[in-house]
Amino acid sequence: MSYIGILITYVFISNLILSQFLGLCPFIGVSKDLESASGMGFAVTFVMTIASLVTWMVYHWVLIPLNVEYLQTVTFILTIASLVQLVEMVVQKYSPALYKALGIYLPLITTNCGVLGIALININQGYNLMEGFMAGFSAGLGFMLALILMSSIRVKMQTERVPKAFKGIPIAFISGGLMALAFMAFDKALLTNLIG
């Protein structure tokens, strides 16, 4: 599959949040305003890209030679959690500006199921290293897209008269569901039409 195909697939067709329903905590928790949504989006994209690379390496260069592929979920969680910690330390040391922008979101991502999800998807789809890298990056972009769309909706919703029982999280989930419904319009047929 071409890299453009992977990009379109993970941003629109198999959007992590809106069609695979992974990583819903930040989708609800950090989508209150545009600033934090984009900050979280960038942080997730960053981590997903690196995590895709590293988990691919761990799977193909450590798990397969040792014949323990069945431990992939456990090892990926360990890998991603320590990776995020490491990245946080490195960024804090060498790029305080980047740390100020992403720092507070990084610890939130250590156990994000979206990151683990894309790592496992890479393995299941049998991607090579570069395809995995692209898939991680695109999934991050798709995550950011969903988060930013959601945050604009929620900002608008603050001034709407929402029935009391639906205020806050419930109405956010309902709007998220409607958005997911809209994203169902992107399917494999779109991809074949676009790039044949």
Partner: peptide, 17 residues
């Protein structure tokens, strides 16, 4: 082997951190 691998792998990551 699975237990040993997880221990070693987790330990290595911990040490690395």
């Amino acid at each position: 082997l699975g237990i040993l691998f997880t221990l070693v792998f987790g330990g290595a990551l911990g040490m690395g951190l």
